[in-house]
Design a protein around this nucleic acid. Structure first.
Lengths: 173, 173
DNA sequence: CATCATCCGGAGTGGTCACTCCGTTTGTCA
DNA sequence: TGACAAACGGAGTGACCACTCCGGATGATG
């Protein structure tokens, strides 16, 4: 299971390059672009990560898990709105995160997204119980709201955050 | 400029096929798929419409112009909300319209979209003057709101229209 | 009916992508 | 230091796309 020194070094380089490229260009960026940036052949990328989805997961899963962690740590009646705004803000700044939330990839990413969704659902229900969010919004609507609001923020002119505010206002009873 | 009889017939078939395919599969559908459905070779499609954008425009522009017409005919303080809901509802039912609103294509489509946007802007300003829409929303936000709400409706479970209501509620002062 | 411009069909071109294969290089360890 | 497993590099493969090209078919015309 121990990698050779050069393999270990290249693996790190590939992950750094993938993080940079995916973050700025989105997950549709080509594997070759990542290989170039890492100073490595394409074959090397595919030995370390046999599938593009594997590379995507290696780069993105921990970001989503951190989002879920942050969500689970929130408290208070307004926690849901903080969660919502936080997800949008981070995904707006990171195209890898944005694409990971919008599209389907490997199973590890799917379960991380499930965790995030569960955390969001808990906050949503708490907010609804506190009467700060309308009751006709379900947990299944959450992904839709997040992705839609993300598109709004992406297309809207500066200053950022206005669309988040509009949607959050619409979510109140 | 008069076409031969078979050319005229094929042109109609291609337009019908393109309308059907683009509407149900989106504008990313391949030209070959349309040729097959029209019962025609790919070469024939490209003689009538030298570029895929040309074909897209031939199918979609009149739909957007009809939306603009409807918008210009609206009146009353709630007209903006009717306009907004109408655009979303139609684009949700027609993937060609959805993609045409979201992405860039030829110049004819661009100017049709401009007309639609102008009509929307007029309604927005009227609504803001009447005090039914918050004042910190600009005309440039319109496309963002429409596209984002479209994504919401696409991802949200039934019944349709709930996301429209949330966003419209958020747009009120 | 013959002639010919017009139009048709679909194999072919060039581009991009994820992914593979194998000859070559390199780290490791006795 | 020599020998070998491990890792590398990048040309090659196959799939999909928009778009082209030209030999053959066909509708218009006198």
């Amino acid at each position: 299971m121990n990698l050779r020194a050069d393999a270990r070094r290249n693996r790190v380089r590939i992950l750094e390059a993938a993080d940079a490229v995916f973050s700025s260009d989105g997950l549709a960026a080509s594997t070759e672009q990542i290989a170039r940036r890492a100073g490595v052949g394409i074959g090397t990328v595919f030995r370390h990560f046999p599938t593009k989805d594997d590379l995507v997961e290696a780069v993105v899963v921990h970001r989503i898990e951190r989002l879920a962690d942050e969500a689970e740590r929130l408290s208070g009646d307004e926690a849901f709105f903080e969660f919502f705004a936080n997800v949008i803000r981070q995904a707006r700044a990171n195209l890898a995160l944005r694409d990971a939330l919008a599209d389907e990839f490997g199973p590890a990413l799917a379960s991380a997204k499930q965790r995030l969704n569960d955390a969001g659902q808990a906050l949503l229900e708490r907010a609804q119980a506190a009467g700060v969010v309308r009751k006709d919004v379900s947990a299944d609507d959450l992904k839709a709201l997040v992705n839609g609001c993300l598109v709004m923020e992406q297309h809207a002119p500066d200053p950022p955050g206005r669309m988040i505010e509009v949607v959050c206002a619409g979510l109140r009873p």
